[in-house]
Amino acid sequence: MEEQSEPQMEFHVSYLDADSGLVRTEVFAERGEAERFANARLKDEDSWAVVDAVAVQQARRLAA
């Protein structure tokens, strides 16, 4: 029986692009980098950003 290792994580930032009015997503390898990017998107009271930790294996299955 194979031992399963911890899944590799990536961090998806979904945010409202104030210039276009569209929801966009960026992907980062490091949580800190994703959080800094998300914080930079918060320009006014209508802005929002969400950071989701996603297992890389899960992300690949969803893309298939």
Score class of each variant (00 low, 15 high):
residue 1 M to V: 07
residue 1 M to Q: 13
residue 1 M to F: 07
residue 1 M to Y: 03
residue 2 E to L: 12
residue 3 E to W: 04
residue 3 E to V: 15
residue 5 S to V: 06
residue 5 S to A: 13
residue 6 E to Y: 08
residue 7 P to M: 08
residue 7 P to Q: 12
residue 7 P to T: 10
residue 7 P to R: 13
residue 8 Q to V: 05
residue 9 M to T: 07
residue 10 E to A: 02
residue 10 E to P: 01
residue 10 E to G: 04
residue 11 F to V: 03
residue 11 F to T: 02
residue 11 F to K: 01
residue 11 F to L: 06
residue 12 H to Y: 12
residue 13 V to R: 02
residue 14 S to R: 15
residue 15 Y to C: 01
residue 15 Y to V: 04
residue 16 L to A: 02
residue 16 L to R: 10
residue 16 L to T: 07
residue 17 D to Y: 10
residue 17 D to M: 06
residue 18 A to Y: 02
residue 18 A to S: 15
residue 18 A to R: 15
residue 19 D to W: 01
residue 19 D to Y: 03
residue 20 S to A: 11
residue 20 S to D: 10
residue 20 S to Q: 09
residue 21 G to C: 10
residue 21 G to N: 11
residue 22 L to S: 11
residue 23 V to K: 11
residue 23 V to D: 09
residue 24 R to H: 08
residue 24 R to W: 04
residue 24 R to I: 03
residue 24 R to V: 05
residue 24 R to L: 09
residue 25 T to C: 11
residue 26 E to M: 14
residue 26 E to Y: 06
residue 26 E to S: 13
residue 27 V to Y: 07
residue 27 V to L: 07
residue 28 F to R: 08
residue 28 F to P: 05
residue 28 F to C: 05
residue 29 A to V: 06
residue 29 A to R: 09
residue 29 A to Y: 11
residue 29 A to I: 04
residue 30 E to M: 08
residue 30 E to L: 08
residue 31 R to P: 00
residue 31 R to D: 03
residue 31 R to L: 15
residue 31 R to Y: 08
residue 33 E to T: 14
residue 33 E to F: 01
residue 33 E to H: 07
residue 34 A to P: 04
residue 36 R to P: 01
residue 36 R to Q: 13
residue 37 F to Y: 14
residue 37 F to W: 07
residue 37 F to P: 01
residue 38 A to N: 13
residue 38 A to S: 11
residue 39 N to G: 07
residue 39 N to M: 03
residue 40 A to H: 09
residue 40 A to F: 03
residue 41 R to L: 06
residue 41 R to H: 00
residue 41 R to S: 04
residue 42 L to I: 15
residue 42 L to G: 04
residue 42 L to M: 15
residue 42 L to V: 12
residue 43 K to S: 07
residue 44 D to S: 12
residue 48 W to C: 02
residue 48 W to S: 05
residue 49 A to Q: 04
residue 50 V to M: 14
residue 50 V to T: 12
residue 51 V to E: 03
residue 51 V to C: 06
residue 52 D to T: 10
residue 53 A to F: 08
residue 54 V to F: 11
residue 55 A to P: 13
residue 56 V to Q: 07
residue 56 V to Y: 06
residue 57 Q to W: 07
residue 58 Q to L: 09
residue 58 Q to C: 01
residue 59 A to W: 11
residue 59 A to I: 00
residue 59 A to G: 09
residue 59 A to F: 09
residue 59 A to C: 04
residue 60 R to M: 14
residue 60 R to F: 06
residue 61 R to L: 14
residue 61 R to M: 11
residue 61 R to Q: 14
residue 61 R to K: 13
residue 61 R to Y: 05
residue 62 L to T: 01
residue 63 A to K: 15
residue 63 A to I: 03
residue 63 A to D: 09
residue 63 A to Q: 14
residue 64 A to Y: 00
residue 64 A to V: 10
residue 64 A to E: 13
